[in-house]
Design a protein around this nucleic acid. Sequence first.
DNA 1: CCGCGTGTGGCACTGAGTGTCAACAGTGGC
DNA 2: GCCACTGTTGACACTCAGTGCCACACGCGG
Lengths: 196, 196
Amino acid sequence: MNGVTFGNLAQRKRQLVRDELAEAALKLLAFRGFEETTIDEITAAAGVSRRTFFRYYKSKEDVIIEFLGHVGEEMQAALAARPASETPTQALRQTLTVFTDACVAYPEKSVRLTRLILTTPSLTARYLERQLEWKNKLAAQLQKRLGGKNNLRPVVLIGMAFAALDAALDTWSASDGKQDLAELLDEAFAIAFSAD
Amino acid sequence: MNGVTFGNLAQRKRQLVRDELAEAALKLLAFRGFEETTIDEITAAAGVSRRTFFRYYKSKEDVIIEFLGHVGEEMQAALAARPASETPTQALRQTLTVFTDACVAYPEKSVRLTRLILTTPSLTARYLERQLEWKNKLAAQLQKRLGGKNNLRPVVLIGMAFAALDAALDTWSASDGKQDLAELLDEAFAIAFSAD
DNA sequence: CCGCGTGTGGCACTGAGTGTCAACAGTGGC
DNA sequence: GCCACTGTTGACACTCAGTGCCACACGCGG
């Protein structure tokens, strides 16, 4: 074939630089504050040029938000995979397990990340925007599942599920990860999806 | 008194400049696109210097978001004013009337604004951040009303109310303001606060 | 008329983000 | 081993957002 097959060596080098930047960013931003830290300081710590930073991340906010990875796509797939026998509530509760499991798998890092996001206005804004994308994906998926022509219902149900998730996450990060996130989410779901 | 009594003349001049900037911004941003319009173009249209712009608004996003005004404080006051005989659901539904009434009072402008916000990522982000402030205010207010020690419940209920509002607003702006916003919100509330 | 507070414009500066280009390294064909 | 191709990188220059600073003008009160 013409040119390069592109062995995984180059790709692993890319991943290395990407991780180096992400770790340096999280350390500096959490320690010295988001607004107070410049991209030049991050790139200096990671040992690459400023120009290279923007080849991996769109902005300073992006480095942090990208820690969330592809949770949106994974949740959409998880919802699609739930058996049709489940009620929407049950299916949504199980779908959000994708998110909470990631938090529980790396508790200390997740708490640090959550605190940084919730205490930095511009990060909060970007995070909520990302969450909105997740909601839209999941609402479309739920629309398929419910099958009706009422497009209000799936959107409302997804909004409720995330209202429960947000409440659980707030309490969880406020307790420094000491409370059980899954239990908190169960409790929040019980409040949302039952008696008014 | 020392110095200036500060008659309302100066204040009205300030309000005049503020409005001029806001109108010029909305016109240009909606017409030519948010990212494509520079602050210099807005200030040129309003007839003031770039430096003056930043004495009235913190950023380009801010000009648009400020159109929302003090809805947050007004909703908090509205919730506080609801009679104790109402159920939380009823009280919240009435509280959101503050928002929807403002939309219905200036339908064409509200739809333009909503579309601009929802189609511009950085505006969506800032809007959601503002909405989060509203939620926090209202959750604190609802906490007082409910009186219990369970802080999960008010947060979840507020989240549900806004899930209903968001869904209604989406549908409303998608219909170009032709559907009845109050009816849409009633419908969304019925979905959220009843059978799961 | 004179001081005082306030609004304004101009200027310089930092930082974010982008386009462009030359240098360089890995890969495959010969 | 040589060479062409391709992707990554760093350096430079540029635009735009946002801020600090200072001099100037206006309205008001004494």
